[in-house]
Design a protein around this nucleic acid. Structure first.
Lengths: 337, 337
DNA sequence: TTGTATGCGTTATCAA
DNA sequence: TTGATAACGCATACAA
């Protein structure tokens, strides 16, 4: 049985109030008594019960973190940023992986609140609107990752996907490419539709006509990236792209596969630019030119935004956008004419 | 302010005891009263404070999970197995990433215990012996991942690395290779030394002499895998390997790089087998033949082992070994003679 | 079948 | 500078 504050009090011949004072570094304790208490703490190997403390202080110093799938390559780094930053604030992180299941998302929220977390950082698969709205109405501290829900005002950390899609496309244009294909997760996925918008903006600015045959959509998996690319390679030669912008590195990796299967070379025959700068970008061959999204920093900013809400009494309704940066590696080159 | 059991009692005109009975599905409540209480719960949107419940029941239904680096590709899947299995047992998971820092490991344990977790699953970078021993002496439920500490008896979930190293090597031997190189994390890392042992066992069984020039060591990173491979390719032609077994997929991916830089082809010029079957194995080209370690299942087994300790009064000192399986893809082929 | 009273480990109020 | 006592939200022994 672990020692309690009462055991320390008895052992040091003082009241539990005094022990509590020592534990919380209060000034109004005589040095001699403080000493007595501290040795008792050492002798009994006492460690305070933070849960009981939380009960009276009405805060747990725990935050929740809910993701749809931690094996999605964007999340581990984000998670790291979150737990480390949280630790620096004195918060622990309770973690849920919902496997994209909406009912699990609901359950996770319910459980986290039952466990009295002080706030929740979450990335919901589809904007699970009702849940978020309910939390917002209660002024429960919450931070949404990535998704800027258009008509809601949940505090969010997000990317400027339009700008990053523009950057990737503009880079390919600067290399002389005009037939630039785009593999996208489609209009239904917010990040996908935004990156597509950036792609279109860049084309428009360069006065390159938008060719809808060059835009193929599928879910964010390598397999789907491969299929999309196969689709593009099946176009008649004169319509075929000389470059590709894939809206996720994972899809770019799948596209590599299709390109190799067609006995084409990267970047000699086709240039590829990805998005996200996941670990795999440096592992596939040739190393993938892609857009870094600074996920670790994004996680840190998420914690900042959450803690701000926890400490503030007035509602915080802010969207924090994180910057992105094109990382030039080996998968794109100037168009040979 | 969230409603409490007392609010429900008042609202339903019953005692808090009765409310508690309803909450815990006790049979000794008249249906009519149960109804009254339940509607009160609905009306006030009440959700029980599990932390307070934990204080009296002396358990939190939370387990801790400590990893050195969640971005290491083996961990996300393991984490998934753990949180999902834990959820099925009614446990939440408090997560720490120590960034390989020993002092953070210590702090994480201290914090988790202060937060009254019922048990901890951890993977310590080096066997942080003292900490583990202390926990074991207190009969605090704990499960160690991967590392079988030789002289301690901390419950562990591990891999049979000798068998898996043997499997990988035997496969290359069966393809006719005799000059099989091995990229290893070295004798200092337990998994590395065990896989090396399996490699040697397979060679010995096939009566292929062990050539220490063919074994190169480095840390588990792609960069180090590349350097190791460069080292091997620098051998005089007659001593050069026709096949490679890398003890981690990440190092195999690095080796790919060195092989491509040397203008050699995989598997035509050199066959490669990795270990771990991480996501990247299917993304690099050609797809990597490797050994699957069933990380999700391993996480589940870890939770089983931990919950067994939590529920049992007698100490559990068991090492659970998980099986491994060779996954044949495209990176190895029969030796051309 | 229901309610009263006590305690889980801690902090805060107030008095000494 | 110290201590007695009442909370925090809940479960439970015991009484009614």
């Amino acid at each position: 049985m672990a020692a309690t504050i009462r055991d320390i009090a008895r052992h040091a011949q003082v009241s539990i109030t005094t022990v509590s004072r020592v534990l919380n570094d209060r000034p109004d304790v005589k040095d001699a008594t403080r000493e007595k208490v501290n040795t008792a703490i050492k002798e009994l190997g006492y460690s305070p019960n933070i849960v009981a403390r939380g009960l009276v202080l009405q805060r747990s110093n725990v935050i929740g973190f809910i993701v749809p799938d931690i094996t999605n390559p964007s999340f581990p780094e984000l998670a790291r940023g979150i737990v480390n930053k949280a630790r620096s604030y004195g918060y622990s992180v309770m973690f849920y992986d919902t496997n994209h299941d909406r009912s699990v998302e609901k359950e996770a929220i319910r459980l986290l609140r039952s466990k009295q977390v002080d706030g929740i950082i979450l990335s919901f698969n589809e904007a699970n609107k009702e849940e978020l709205e309910r939390l917002r109405l209660e002024h429960f501290p919450i931070v949404q990752i990535y998704r800027k829900s258009s008509n809601s005002v949940v505090p969010t950390i997000a990317l400027d996907n339009i700008a990053s899609g523009y950057k990737a496309t503009a880079y390919l244009l600067s290399l002389g490419h005009t037939r630039i294909a785009h593999i996208s997760t489609g209009e239904d996925v917010q990040s996908g539709s935004e990156r597509l918008q950036g792609y279109r903006d860049a084309l428009a600015e360069a006065k390159v006509p938008y060719d809808e045959q060059l835009v193929v959509c599928g879910p964010n998996t390598a397999e789907s990236g491969k299929q999309c690319m196969q689709h593009l390679l099946a176009l008649p030669p004169e319509r075929r792209p000389s470059a590709l912008f894939a809206c996720h590195d994972l899809m770019a990796a799948g596209a590599y596969d299709a390109i190799y299967d067609a006995n084409l070379r990267i970047p000699d025959d086709i240039s590829v630019v990805g998005h996200d700068n996941n670990q795999i970008a440096e592992l596939i061959h040739p190393k993938l030119t892609t857009v870094d999204t600074f996920k670790y920093a994004l996680g840190e900013k998420g914690v900042d935004l959450l803690v701000e809400q926890i400490l503030s009494d007035k509602p915080v309704n802010r969207i924090v956008e994180s910057s992105t940066e094109l990382i030039i590696r080996e998968s794109a080159q100037a168009l040979m004419t």
